[in-house]
């Protein structure tokens, strides 16, 4: 499993090259995605996560764009704790994980001038697949569910200099809100993405 993840990452890295010859109104981005769990998600895991990836395509038109974004954030926490339920108490080292995958449609509005740093504001909406897992001792408790969700975001892009005018660094801050589904309460986390985009 550990071997497959870097292979998948390398495969994703090849994708920007696929869009090279498709005109300059297309934006293709790849980001390192970090996450800070909030509310219900923070009750489950509280550590800041440095583990995640984002892959994004945008179709640009003037100062706006629409597109599709795929994201994955892995949040985890290791703690020694006692959990209480009714007349039972359980103590042990707990390893908790939230793996959140999202497939979101996006819309963005860009400010500033072309060729310079440009802030943008946007909103994404779509579906989240959230897998929650608790390993305690030799036991495992897990659930997974699909959620509908929305994610407003702010960001800015900085074009590279010289001959790399169609490449840019960009960063976003996104609030992910996945509505409750089944027995799983709503989940939320703040993502900070840093990456680069190619425009063709």
């Amino acid at each position: 499993m550990r071997i497959r993840i870097p292979i998948a990452a390398l495969a994703l890295l090849l994708l920007p090259g696929v869009v090279v010859a498709q005109g300059r109104s297309k934006w293709f981005g790849l980001t390192w995605s970090m996450a800070s769990p909030m509310q219900n998600s923070k009750d489950f895991v509280s550590d800041y996560s440095f583990r995640g990836l984002g892959l994004e395509w945008r179709q640009l038109s003037g100062t706006t764009s629409f597109g599709l974004a795929l994201n994955w954030n892995a949040m985890n926490e290791e703690s020694f704790r006692t959990s209480t339920a009714d007349q039972a108490d359980l103590t042990g080292t707990q390893f908790r994980y939230i793996n959140a995958y999202s497939i979101l449609l996006s819309g963005h509005k860009y400010l500033g001038q072309a060729g310079g740093p440009r802030p943008f504001i946007g909103v994404k909406t779509g579906t989240y697949y959230i897998d929650r897992r608790t390993d305690v001792g030799l036991w495992r408790i897990s659930d997974n569910s699909w959620h509908f969700g929305v994610a407003p975001e702010l960001g800015f892009t900085v074009p590279m200099a010289g001959n790399l005018q169609y490449e840019s660094f960009y960063t976003t801050v996104r609030y992910n809100y996945a509505l409750a589904a089944g027995d799983v309460p709503y989940q939320s986390w703040l993502s900070v993405d840093i990456g680069f985009a190619v425009r063709r």
Binding site: P6, L10, L13, W32, F50, A74, F196
Partner: peptide, 18 residues
């Protein structure tokens, strides 16, 4: 550039396995 940035992602990603 793409390769370097991509390699950086992989290193950062693999280096912080839960």
């Amino acid at each position: 550039l793409r390769f370097c940035v991509g390699a950086l992602f992989v290193v950062l990603w693999a280096g912080c396995y839960p």
